[in-house]
Design a protein around this nucleic acid. Structure first.
Lengths: 146, 146
DNA sequence: TATTGTTATACTCTATAACTATA
DNA sequence: TATAGTTATAGAGTATAACAATA
């Protein structure tokens, strides 16, 4: 019983450490968490409208306006005309933004390697499978509670 | 190689789901994340000065003033005189605050049980041990990078 | 002199609502 | 009529700096 809570706490502790690592990156890049998240999404999806960024980030369109304003000021993204829809703007990383996105992806992969490369393959398989099961259990629980 | 990043992503995904569950609790309690965090610390440590809350939360003293102001307004905590240091105030949960703290602890334990109770004991042991190792590896890495 | 908490000020993230331009 | 983005407005979280009371 007690073990189960301790185990959940360990998952959260590890996530907190990863967050602290990201916070260090943000300080060095002079970026905030919200803007870094937007850049991350942009890196994963490519040039996007602000509406699609709002959906991906789970925030309001107004909020995206502010985040993009900040990233334009800092030179990480630019607004470009949408090729077919004149209402929309395409948010695109600048060269500076691309560097940050590349560092993010690289840093994330490097952290994963450093954390897990010494873990024996069978243990890592059990670890990953347990995470999968737990995520599936959680998803089912949330659907039940609607 | 690719697996390692995917595994780290799963840890973060699970933590995000737990965060979403907490967000639901916060909506129902009409509390914000920062104020809920303060209540959680208060539940773990007992009545505290604002300075010690600032250290525990990793935020400025000024910030704690604002969070406590909000929690006093909502009736979750009260400020009391410190028994020996007349500069300091002791932040103490009210009856209403105690109910929230109890729900937090209870909900957290219940979630852990629901998530992990079906996992076979040996697998859970491997899972927890891997988390311990990974956290230790991370801590060592951060110390090295100073 | 150092510490505790507050006032003053400012920036970021967040939201809803009203508005403009376009579909 | 609906959608994309902005202006207007507001609240919460966060920070630093200056200040008062107390140690």
């Amino acid at each position: 019983m007690e073990d189960l809570t301790a185990t959940l706490d360990k998952v959260l502790h590890l996530a907190t450490l990863v967050g602290a690592d990201l916070a260090r990156f943000e300080r060095e890049s002079e970026l905030t968490t919200a803007r870094t998240h937007l850049l991350w999404v942009l890196g994963a999806t490519g040039p996007s409208t602000q509406q699609s960024l709002a959906s991906a980030l789970g925030v309001s369109a107004r909020n995206v306006t502010g985040l993009v304003d900040g990233l334009v000021s800092s030179g990480h993204v630019s607004r470009a005309a949408h090729p077919t829809d004149r209402r929309a703007t395409l948010v695109t990383p600048t060269a500076k933004g691309e560097v940050v996105i590349h560092s993010l992806v690289e840093g994330h992969g490097q952290l994963a390697r450093r954390l897990f490369e010494r873990v024996p393959a069978e243990r890592l398989a059990v670890f990953a499978a347990t995470l999968d099961d737990t995520i599936a259990t959680f998803t089912r629980l949330m659907e039940e509670t609607q």
